[in-house]
Structures are given as C-alpha cells and as structure tokens.
C-alpha cells in the first residue's frame, strides 16, 4: 500500500512539462476557490457543489497523459477532470450559474458536466454509475479498432459498489482499453478507506481480476502522469485495463454542508503538507523558476476565471421551454 513521500518522486521530467502541469493544477485550484466564492454569494443555480481541492494532481496527471481522441468519465466531484481534460472555464462557470452558455446549457450544474467535443462523456451524480458507461465506450472502441483509450475517474467509495466489480470484471475478460482511476481521497463521505475495504491495495485488488494495478502517490503530479502513461500505453497496445490507485486527500468537507468532524485534524494537517500545488511549486522553485514567473501564472489564471465568470453572467439563464421538448433525442412521430 502507498505511504506518502516527503518529496515528489520524479525530478528528471523536463521543465516545460512541469510548468504546464503546475499551471493546470493552480488553474483548477483557483477555479474551485472562485466557485466557492460564487456559492457564498448565492450566484450558483444549485446548492450541490463538491470541490476537489487537494485532489488536483489526479485530474491533471491523468488527463495530461491522454490523447485528444480518448474519452473520460467523471464524478460528482468533477470540476478538475473537466478543466484538466480541456473543458472551457466559461462552460464550467456558466453551467454552475445555470446559464445557456454552460456545458449542459444550465441543466446539469456542478455534478453533471460534459463536453463531447473533447471526449468528456459526462460526470455523474451516482457513485459508480458511470463506470459501466466508460466500460461500454471502451468496448465500442475496441470492437471498432479505434485505438482510443477511456479513463474513468471514480472515488474510493465507488469501489464498494457492485457495478465496480461487474465493470472491472467485464473489462478484464474482454481486455478493454480502459484505465480505472481510483481517486482515493481516503474518505467515502464519512467512511474511512479502512472501513470500506479489508484489502486496501489497489494493486492486489487488480491481481484478483487478472489485470494490471498500481498504488501511486496521487499528490505527486509527475508520479500520477507516469503511472497514467504506463496504463494508457498498455490499454492502447491492447494489453487490457489497469486499476490505477491514486492516494489523495479531500482538503475540505464532502460538500459545503460538511465540516468533516469525523476526521482527525492531525491527519488533515499531515495531508495539507502534501498539497499537490505546493509540491509542484517547490519543484519548480528548485528548477530556478522565479517569483515573477509564478506571479505571471497567477495573473493569467485570475484573468481567465474573471473572463469566464463575465461570459457566464452575460449569458441568458437556462430556458424552461425546452425542458419538455428535449426529453428525447428522436421526437415522437406518433404523438399527435
């Protein structure tokens, strides 16, 4: 099982990659901080909002390793996956604010993000509900010989759902091109990982399915990216699925309503030292990136977020009229 490392593992990566990853980590962090601010100002269309602050390296490391034609599926805590995959900041903000310019035209809000044009097949509010969908996408891709790979993000809690087993088992039997990304933030709402499962190693779980599996430091974006590249490579070569176990931590509560009273403050403090943004920041500092560079990144991201919120605010609110007509993709010829 994974144990947190004091420093990041890989240091041989080129600085261009590292700076790109850092920028993306910070972009997601700042976007979600902005979202929490909008929530406090009552500017969101829904009360449901789960942020991934502390878990950004999972989204960034995995998505960086994917090709443009690949697919992802995501969770109720999916802002990071959406942005890391290339979703537009304005589509995210407008969606959360219930506007037509939103990813789902203001109908999905925080838990349902999508962008088919970049292979984002939707984030899902049912824990584990999208794992078979990702598996089916991988099946289709394999049947058609398309050489695409699917990455399905889900949390530690989802591994306790029956559909996790059915999906991993089927993908293993069919040797499907899919990476099951276990974004293990240690807590399934209030239930610790040790009470979710008696076998806490994802690598060992994978063995039981007859597929590859690894346990990786999910706070180290380079380690995540390296492990994801290995898994995606295997999938693309037709060598079947991987269970990619990424240990991370949800810095805030499950949602705004949750003060995480069930967690030990010392545990929270320990993980705070393993802030993925901070770790990447420190590594860049060690590579002689100066304050001016960091300030410029801060300014760029702040400007992008401000512009996105402005686009959202100028977009019309989601319309009620199509609530009825858009239930079906094929309108009924029979209904007269």
């Amino acid at each position: 099982m994974f144990a947190p490392n004091p420093t990041m593992a890989a240091t041989e990566t080129d600085t261009e990659t590292l700076s790109r990853l850092y920028r993306e980590l910070l972009r997601i962090r700042r976007a979600e901080e902005g979202i929490l601010e909008l929530l406090l100002k009552n500017k969101l269309s829904s009360t449901m909002c789960h942020v991934s602050i502390g878990q950004e390296a999972v989204a960034v490391g995995v998505c960086d390793a994917l090709e443009p034609d690949d697919y992802i599926t995501s969770t109720h805590r999916g802002h990071g996956h959406f942005l890391a995959r290339g979703g537009a900041m304005s589509a995210l903000m407008a969606e959360l604010m219930g506007r037509e310019a939103g990813a789902c035209r203001g109908r999905g809000s925080s838990m349902h993000l999508v962008d088919a044009s970049i292979g984002h097949l939707g984030s899902n509010a049912i824990v584990g509900g999208h794992i078979p969908i990702a598996t089916g996408a991988a099946l289709w891709t394999a049947l058609r010989g398309e050489h695409r790979v699917v990455a399905s993000f889900f949390g530690d809690g989802a591994t306790s759902e029956g559909i996790f087993h059915e999906s991993v088992n089927f993908a293993a039997v069919q040797r499907l091109p899919i990476v099951f990304v276990v974004e293990n933030n240690q807590w399934a709402m209030s239930l610790p990982w040790a009470k979710s499962t008696a076998q806490q190693s994802i690598e060992v779980k994978a063995e039981g399915y007859g597929i590859a599996g690894v346990d990786v430091d999910g706070q180290d974006v380079l380690a995540v990216r390296t492990a994801a590249r290995d898994a995606i490579g295997r999938a693309r070569r037709g060598e079947g699925p991987t269970l990619l176990g990424l240990s991370t931590y949800r810095f805030l509560g499950h949602s705004r309503a949750d003060p995480s009273s069930y967690r030990d403050k010392a545990e929270e403090e320990k993980w705070r030292l393993r802030d993925p943004v901070l770790l990447a920041h420190n590594l860049l500092m060690a590579h002689d990136f100066d304050e001016e560079w960091f300030e410029q990144v801060d300014r760029d991201i702040a400007a992008e977020i401000a512009a996105a919120i402005e686009i959202a605010e100028n977009s019309p609110p989601a319309s009620i009229g199509e609530v009825f007509s858009d239930i079906y993709a094929t309108p009924l010829e029979g209904i007269r």
Partner: peptide, 19 residues
C-alpha cells in the same frame, strides 16, 4: 458475464460513442 447492471450500463456507453 452474468452482470445485468453492466450489460445495460455498457450498452449505454457503447451507444454514447456511436454504437
């Protein structure tokens, strides 16, 4: 396999991407 939830879920996944 005998996995009804998977059968329908995977059919949906295949449908979403072109099947």
């Amino acid at each position: 396999p005998m996995s009804e939830a998977l059968i329908v879920g995977a059919a949906l996944g295949a449908a979403v991407v072109g099947g």
